[in-house]
């Protein structure tokens, strides 16, 4: 494992990216930060700029206008960067599969490391997903 990746896993800073979601996953991500779940105690921090991010949390069904922005943003993230698809929309487009404005799923646009299904996934599921991501990348303990 590269030193960069090793350092990243100590305290992954997350950036939240909504590509046309319904807010549900987004507010559940924010829920993870608030007192009941409080993932900040594990060193995870929601950052405001993509250039500070280690992990991208992508929600939503990738509609046409946001796909262009998503590509630009993915180019701007310092690599290595891990991508987590949160919610059924980001994973497989779910109910929006037949929509004219959501032509391709997220994993055809950028590489995805972990999928967290659910509509919306519970904060517990998100934390479990990120833990799995860390174990997968860092090797089992």
């Amino acid at each position: 494992m590269s030193l960069k990746l090793k350092a990243l896993l100590k305290s992954p800073w997350v950036f939240h990216l909504s590509t046309g979601s319904c807010n549900n996953c987004d507010i559940e991500i924010l829920d993870c930060l608030t007192p009941r779940f409080d993932i900040e105690r594990f060193g995870m921090l929601l950052v405001g700029s993509i250039k500070h991010a280690d992990v991208l949390l992508v929600t939503g069904s990738c509609n046409r206008m946001s796909v262009e922005r998503l590509k630009v943003l993915y180019e701007q993230v310092p690599k290595p960067c891990l991508v987590v698809a949160i919610g059924t929309c980001a994973g497989s487009r779910g109910i929006f599969k037949d929509s004219y404005n959501c032509p391709v799923p997220l994993d055809k646009i950028i590489p995805v490391d972990v999928y967290i299904p659910g509509c919306p996934p519970k904060p517990e599921a998100m934390i479990a997903g990120v833990v799995k991501l860390i174990e997968k990348v860092g090797g089992s303990k």
Binding site: G20, N63, S66, F96, S99, Y100, C102
Partner: peptide, 14 residues
């Protein structure tokens, strides 16, 4: 606007 448009009205008609 438009970053959130998912075509719900059309989907609903299907």
């Amino acid at each position: 606007m438009g970053y959130n448009h998912r075509g719900i009205e059309k989907l609903s008609e299907m």
